[in-house]
Design a protein around this nucleic acid. Structure first.
Lengths: 145, 145
DNA sequence: CTTATATAGATTGTACACAATTTAATAGCG
DNA sequence: CGCTATTAAATTGTGTACAATCTATATAAG
């Protein structure tokens, strides 16, 4: 049946993305275990390290394309871990500024080896990471518009 | 700083996968809205449609690479939607068999247009879906071993 | 100045993911 | 046969995602 084939092929393509993402997240989970971070928490820390330790909640949400329903509790956990603190903007009382603590800054050092470890785990026969990234970004561009 | 660059590149590559997966899931969510299915629920229905309406819980878990902690509540919701039913295997009382209801079978028709709709939304400049799938599968193979 | 609108976050509710544990049933071994 | 190990699901607990709503603050229009 044509429909059967179509649904099966579709399954293959989109399931590939779904599965790969879960596998990468699981791989990160292992690497981040000793830092006591989840993968989304690691993404937040990356953004803060790149910004020198200070970033608005709004800017973070834009950067990660996540909303407050996801970020608010996630940030709460990072605060509970003593990695950052939250304060109100003086100019605009609606806005929240995130700032790394000393512990948050120093975690940067311990995270330095994570990228190369992950890269090593992902590299292998048939895997072309730049091509993969390029395709994923093109797809994201397509679906965002 | 070298570490800064490394962390930033890492972010780019893996964030691309993370973002693309969320965008595709959101796109499915729109297409599946009138079927009252989520994307993971749709994957379960696909597996059942392909198997002629009958599939063991264990086989489903293996196929989707999901554990019972994810599948058990998901299946409960599909049962609540009257799309399938659960029964124990006669030969092995530990095993559970999932079976499509009449409503579950007939939903197949209404789902037939989903793949081509998604394909159309994903197709565009710079997007090579076969290449993308091949890369994702190679990566999955690498991370599974 | 006051009201209407817009914006930033927080909150609420639903639905995954997944590690870890528990329960029930089967298989295998001495 | 009886006991141990294994296996299949369910359960429990934590942590995202995200839609929808709510609250507080700021901005704009009249």
């Amino acid at each position: 049946m044509a429909s059967q084939t179509s649904l099966a092929l579709d399954n293959q393509l989109c399931f590939s993305l779904y599965r790969a993402q879960r596998l990468v997240t699981r791989t990160y989970h292992q690497l981040l275990q000793e830092l006591h971070l989840t993968y989304p928490q690691y993404l937040v820390m990356l953004a803060l390290w790149e910004e020198g330790g200070e970033l608005g909640m709004k800017e973070l949400a834009t950067r990660l394309e996540l909303d407050s329903g996801t970020l608010t509790p996630l940030i709460k956990r990072l605060i509970a871990l003593n990695l950052l603190q939250k304060e109100r903007s003086a100019e605009d009382e609606r806005r929240t500024i995130l700032r790394l603590t000393e512990a948050g800054h120093s975690l940067h050092h311990r995270a330095e080896q994570v990228p190369e470890q992950l890269h090593a785990l992902c590299t292998g026969e048939g895997v072309n990471l730049p091509v993969l990234k390029s395709e994923l970004d093109s797809l994201a561009r397509r679906l965002s518009s």
